[in-house]
């Protein structure tokens, strides 16, 4: 479903802030894979995700989604393949627009925006049903401006928006990191349910090792712009927190002491 072939990206090349963020990343995701991605700060987790989304062009390598090479496509054109949920709950929704308007925008992802009416009566009923599945009472607040919702509500709504048109790949960028633990858990459960229900292929970046172990069928660890550990299936099911920390120490070698604190 997703193929990353030897991707490189350097930020601010030729300046004192030069940062080699991706250092030859290759990865192949099969249809239905739910991969969790961990690594310390600056390891390149979110950078890989942004490279897939096309936030900026990569320096070398290629990105193939569902058999189509998207390396040269701008962000908005790749959107038809991708559902995205961001770390900051403010990023995924338009605060000054109504809940139903946000959904209507998402419903048209990948389609041409015409001069037909922006949201039809029939759609509104559909959205009401969809919102009920979130169990947040949003179905009764369809015309509420999204800016009035809490962070958790906004993330749940963004999840719904990301999957309203079934994406080839769902990109989750630490989407529960900004939420309190209880809300985070609820949003993660919703995430699991949606991925299962629609049989989605998903790529979830997380800071939380426990979440990375519990969720998904595959786990990737990154360090210094490289994938240093990739485990799937039964082996992943048996993974423990201690395994991961040991693995990290063994594979990454240096700078582990500071990272241990970050990852715990």
């Amino acid at each position: 479903m997703l193929e990353l072939n030897n991707i490189y990206k350097t930020f601010n090349p030729g300046t004192v802030n030069e940062k080699r963020a991706l250092n030859g990343v290759s990865l192949k995701l099969n249809e239905g894979d739910f991969v969790t991605v961990i690594g310390s700060n600056g390891a390149g987790k979110s950078t890989v995700l942004n490279a897939i989304a096309g936030v900026w062009p990569i320096d070398a390598g290629s990105i193939v989604i569902d058999g189509q090479d998207v390396t040269g496509l701008p962000e908005y054109k790749r959107a038809k393949f991708l559902g995205r949920v961001f770390q900051d709950p403010m990023t995924g929704t338009a605060a000054t627009m109504e809940i139903q308007e946000n959904l209507a925008l998402a419903k048209r992802r990948g389609a041409r925006r015409t001069l037909r009416v922006g949201i039809t009566k029939k759609e509104q009923e559909e959205y009401r049903e969809q919102l009920k599945t979130l169990d947040l009472g949003l179905e009764d607040r369809m015309t509420t401006k999204v800016g009035l919702l809490s962070g958790g509500q906004r993330q749940a709504l963004t999840l719904l928006m990301a999957t309203l048109q079934k994406p080839k790949l769902l990109l989750l960028d630490e989407h529960t990191a900004a939420l309190d633990p209880k809300t985070a858990e609820k949003v993660l459960n919703t995430t699991d349910a949606i991925i299962r229900e629609h049989h989605l292929t998903a790529f979830m970046v997380t800071h939380n090792m426990k979440d990375a172990i519990v969720h998904g069928n595959r786990l990737i660890m990154m360090n210094e712009g490289k994938i240093i550990f990739d485990v799937a299936g039964e082996e992943k099911q048996k993974l423990t927190m201690k395994d991961l920390l040991d693995k990290f120490a063994e594979l990454a070698g240096s700078s582990i002491q500071s990272d241990k604190a970050l990852l715990a």
Partner: peptide, 12 residues
């Protein structure tokens, strides 16, 4: 309202 969101929803 939100450019990141717009591009993520396929808006030019």
């Amino acid at each position: 309202a939100n450019q990141s969101m717009s591009r993520a929803q396929g808006i030019n």
